[in-house]
Design a protein around this nucleic acid. Structure first.
Length: 488
RNA sequence: GCUCCUGUAGUGUAGCGGCCAAUCAUGAAGCCCUCUCGAGGCUUCGACACGGGUUCAAAUCCCGUCGGGAGCACCA
């Protein structure tokens, strides 16, 4: 019998996404459209991964479009941070555009809409205009002649209206049963300077205008985005219809509820400025940077979203689920080391020299061992918690080294592993030549302790501290080893 | 209030008229293995929201009820 049949290969998990409707091989064009208000967070990764995954599957191109049409909500650094985040995620962007450099385009199309009688410039009070819409009624500006609208529009562009005094509106259907799709604002006046264009423009397009125009101009074949845009899609389709443009195929996945995580960039930014968070990669936040820092692999994030699929049901994000997928990836590559939390010192008597060794990875003996030789005063440290256990139980096994009996000093009592079968616990320990080390936990607290010296020679930045969990090495020198906790 | 989306185990997912006394993963519990509370192996727990129809046959189609979510912004 073939013995290989007995060794069951670890089953490769299969992840798949549903097919895209009318997707032509090599001709799929999709986009991700972040607003540059801060770096990406875990919530943003879904739309990024999904679009990227489809473009990779069918072939075509992925466009990154920075939707910076609200100057008040822009963090100039985001223009650089987002591409970095995308790159780390493994999202391959083929073309990038910045909407603030395309205002003239949006103005031109708005003029065309006005000429067609499909848009108007409204100078009514905003609240009043909304009340009328609620009652399915047109405001006085709605039906003004085209020449007047055009005149007003040029005034809007030239800055002759102050903020709130006028807006350009796209007509839809005032009697539409869904109040959310009746006439929507296309351009508004903003006096706040734009980080990129300064005070060059005063008329700022609203997303529904710029998105519709860009989706057409950039040749989008498929649009995948969150369900929260459902009504926006309906609005944008009016513009497509007015111009007779071919519409992309739209998909709207359900909302994701991400528990126990700070995601709001404005909040994070505030905390950073207040000195409460160390930066955008503070482990207490849900930014992509924080995940990276914690040792979450982009492939795990990708798998997570692919497995979640594109259903329009709202879902609950599960950190456990993500960790499990990440563990799949890092378990094999992470060598094992001992870390001792809040070390308690013990000297061992009753033997001259103690030798020991432990595999770098129990599933990969070929990687070699950590070699131990304890001599001289034979000092070791175990964690405070294990120390208590030691004094209670009287006997304990220093894993991969020897057994000892409680006392000051402790007494060497052989190296028979079978002591474990008789109730003794195996605990991790470090010798006197260990290195100071710390683990930054996800809640921001820091565990201080000692790590074994062999870790200094480790090449991979992901390791497992036995019985503690996986950590990512952030800083490593003979004086200090700083790590960040990944997960168990 | 109006409109839209949506309801399969704790979570995520498969199934889309008979092969479903419902898949897989995660989670929980237990056992085995392992000198880690990791990995691996085995076992167990746990779901078609409810009520009507249509049909020989429904998780799958239709209607209603109830539940969840979103939008009705001069944010994206």
């Amino acid at each position: 019998m073939d013995s290989s049949l007995l060794v069951k290969e670890k089953k490769e998990r299969v992840y798949h996404l549903p097919d895209l409707e009318s997707a032509e091989e090599g001709k799929v064009v999709m986009r991700i459209a972040p607003g540059p208000s801060g770096p990406l967070h875990i919530g943003h990764t879904r739309v990024s991964i999904l679009n990227d995954e489809y473009v990779k599957r069918y072939g075509g191109k992925l466009i990154a479009r920075y939707e910076d049409t609200n100057p008040e909500k822009i963090d100039p650094e985001a223009y650089d941070m987002i591409p970095e985040d995308l790159e780390w995620l493994g999202v391959k962007v083929d073309e990038s555009y910045i909407q603030s450099s395309r205002f003239e385009i949006y103005y031109d199309y708005t003029r065309k809409l006005i000429e067609m009688g499909k848009a108007y410039v409204c100078t009514c009070n905003g609240d009043h205009w909304r009340e009328l819409k609620e009652k399915k009624m047109a405001c006085p500006c709605h039906d003004l002649p085209v020449e007047v609208q055009m005149e007003r529009f040029e005034k809007l562009l030239n800055g002759e209206y102050k903020e709130g005094e006028a807006v350009a509106v796209v007509k839809t259907d005032l009697c539409h049963p869904n109040p959310a799709v009746r006439d929507f604002v296309a351009l508004r006046v903003v006096e706040h300077p734009h980080p990129l264009t300064g005070d060059k423009y005063r008329a700022y397009p609203m997303m529904n205008l710029s998105v519709a125009i860009d989706d057409h101009l950039m040749g989008m074949t498929h649009v995948v985005r969150g369900k929260d845009h459902l009504n926006n899609t309906v609005r944008q389709q009016y513009i497509f219809d007015y111009f007779g443009w071919k519409k992309p195929v739209y998909y709207h996945y359900g909302l994701v509820n991400i528990p126990d995580t700070v995601l709001k960039t404005s909040l994070i930014k505030k905390s950073i400025e207040a000195g409460e968070y160390s930066g955008w990669d503070d482990v207490r936040t849900g930014t992509v940077r924080a995940l990276k820092r914690r040792g979450i692999r982009p492939e795990a994030i990708r798998r997570y979203w692919i497995e979640s699929g594109m259903k329009s049901v709202d879902i609950q994000f599960s950190w456990d689920g993500l960790y499990s997928m990440n563990r799949d990836i890092i378990d094999g590559i992470s060598n094992r080391y001992f870390f001792v939390d809040s070390p308690v010192r013990y000297d061992i008597e009753g033997i001259d020299v103690i030798d020991g060794k432990a595999p770098l990875h129990p599933d990969h003996p070929e990687r070699g061992d950590r070699i131990y030789k304890i001599d001289g005063s034979k000092t070791i440290f175990i964690s405070e918690e294990d120390s208590k256990q030691f004094s209670d139980a009287g006997k304990i096994r220093l894993k991969d080294l020897c057994n000892i009996e409680y006392g000051m000093p402790a007494k060497y009592i052989g190296n028979d592993v079978s002591i474990l079968k008789h109730g003794a616990k195996a605990v991790q320990w470090v010798s006197r030549d260990s290195v100071k080390a710390s683990i930054l936990m996800p809640d921001g607290t820091v565990r201080e302790g000692l790590a074994e010296k062999a870790l200094l020679d480790e090449k991979c930045d992901s390791v497992q501290f036995e019985r503690i969990g996986f950590v990512k090495i952030e800083k490593k020198n003979p004086d200090i080893i700083e790590t960040v906790f990944t997960h168990r």
